[in-house]
């Protein structure tokens, strides 16, 4: 699970709003990993995720001047990312992009452009292989869930969002988020059980 990123300074956001490109670059550098990872887990394809993450930052560049509360920048950025993911998901689904064979496997793609997961160098090859298989299973399992369930799991269990942050981002009460998240975890468990047996 990812550690929560440190908050972007208010001045940086204000400078970016004023049109400072260096401030924008700083924001991109600080948040590109998070945006890209959310996109990657939501779509399961690194190329799509890269393109989508860039689109997200273009949206930020174009509309950051409309952001009223700088303190809510992260929730705002996540909302933009999830909105882009939803639209892209629909777009790709209509084109039957997500057939079982077209899934972008983060481990087994041939072209080498697949993003590398961060592994513990102390892991021995067996553990490494197991980890790869687990990652593959999880990614496939996530893509079989409903979109809103996937969002909850990605934000909470992969990105380490607090319930408060999730509530702010998704506009849902904490209790609703908890119950929905539990349902999503149980469904993923079912999916994984089916796929491993």
């Amino acid at each position: 699970m990812m550690k929560t990123s440190p908050k972007i300074q208010k001045e940086v956001i204000e400078n970016c709003k004023a049109g400072d490109e260096r401030a924008f670059t700083e924001i991109v550098l600080q948040r590109q990993k998070k945006v890209f990872n959310i996109a990657y887990r939501m779509l399961g394809n690194s190329e799509e995720a890269r393109d989508l993450a860039q689109e997200v930052f273009i949206s930020v560049f174009e509309s950051i001047k409309d952001l009223k509360e700088e303190i809510k920048f992260d929730a705002w950025l996540t909302q933009i990312t999830l909105n882009h993911c939803r639209n892209r998901w629909k777009y790709l689904k209509r084109r039957q992009y997500f057939s079982s064979d077209s899934l972008d496997d983060p481990i087994e793609t041939e072209d080498g452009s697949v993003p590398r997961a961060i592994y513990d160098p102390s892991d021995n090859p067996e553990i490494l292989l197991e980890k790869k298989m687990i990652q593959q299973l999880i990614q496939r399992g996530l893509l079989k869930l409903k979109e809103d369930q996937r969002e909850l799991l990605v934000l909470r269990d992969l990105q380490g969002y607090s319930y408060e942050e999730m509530g702010e981002t998704l506009g849902l009460p904490e209790g609703t988020i908890k119950s929905k998240l539990h349902r999503a975890r149980m469904d993923l468990k079912e999916v994984l059980e089916r796929s491993t047996h």
């Binding site: 670059t25 990872n37 890269r50 993450a53 592994y119 687990i134």
Partner: peptide, 26 residues
């Protein structure tokens, strides 16, 4: 036990590095 395993697996999924050339492309 299955539930615990699922959560552990989920949490074991590491971060993916951003592809090279992301910023210039942007």
């Amino acid at each position: 036990e299955q539930f615990e395993k699922t959560i552990r697996w989920l949490h074991s999924v590491g971060e993916v590095e951003v592809p090279e050339g992301f910023l210039p492309e942007l």
